[in-house]
Design a protein around this nucleic acid. Structure first.
Lengths: 121, 121
DNA sequence: AATAGTGTACTATAAAAGTATAACACATTT
DNA sequence: AAATGTGTTATACTTTTATAGTACACTATT
């Protein structure tokens, strides 16, 4: 879901926008070759200025995730298909973690740590 | 580990600092009653200005996580003990996810989505 | 050719984040 | 009392982020 940016979160708007678009692609709501809503539409959806939209899209383009076609629109360039097993694994873990009274933020903190620890070894 | 702030990540320095301190507490490297390194030390560690450190600490104090004692130092006020099972669950999930060629950022995006989905139902 | 829909670029302005530097206030130790 | 280590505050400055408004450029359709 593309939602208005949270202006009080402290996270720069353009980063929030990048994340939401990435999420749409990851979740399969936007697939390879799909056209993104026009910038004037995104502007309304996210509740920010065109320039902020442009900054997000330019960064996404630099990351190779979307591609601009002048006068036509933005298109999804890279879309990694997520193995349904991934969602399955996470759903099961989340279920258990919630039972243990964990919250999302703390979970992410630990997840990051566990992930990095595994890379060193 | 307390590391220098990433100044090019786009994430405000004070947020990165808050996250790192929270992480230390969550991981048990900082326990209830422990004194944090002095602000002048934190300034060096994180590579930012004193004012930025102060902003982070004040916010952490407002969140009830640390407490200031003028002339003495900052102390950990709240430390949630993490069930070792939590780390266990995450370690196993991470192991599987890495085998499926997942990266950390994408994993977090999906985790957030799965977490929120479970709250609606 | 004209039009409508799209991305792009520019200027000006403001607000927020961060730096650098210095001084002040409180607590503990000597 | 003095010195040291701690948190606290203030000022001035720079950079980044975001807004507002306007105009321009490219593409497709009619």
């Amino acid at each position: 879901m593309l939602e208005p940016v949270d202006k009080h979160s402290g996270i720069p708007a353009y980063l929030q926008i990048m994340d939401m678009i990435k999420k749409e692609i990851v979740l399969g709501n936007l697939k390879f070759g799909d056209q993104l809503p026009p910038v004037r539409e995104l502007k309304k959806v996210f509740g920010v200025n065109v320039n902020t939209i442009m900054k997000s899209l330019e960064k996404l383009q630099m990351d190779g995730i979307v591609e601009a076609q002048h006068g036509v629109g933005y298109f999804v360039k890279k879309s990694k298909i997520i193995n349904p097993k991934v969602v399955d694994i996470l759903e099961k873990s989340v279920e258990e973690l919630k039972k243990m009274d964990m919250d999302l933020n703390t979970t992410i903190l630990i997840l990051e740590e566990v992930w990095k620890k595994g890379e060193q070894s």
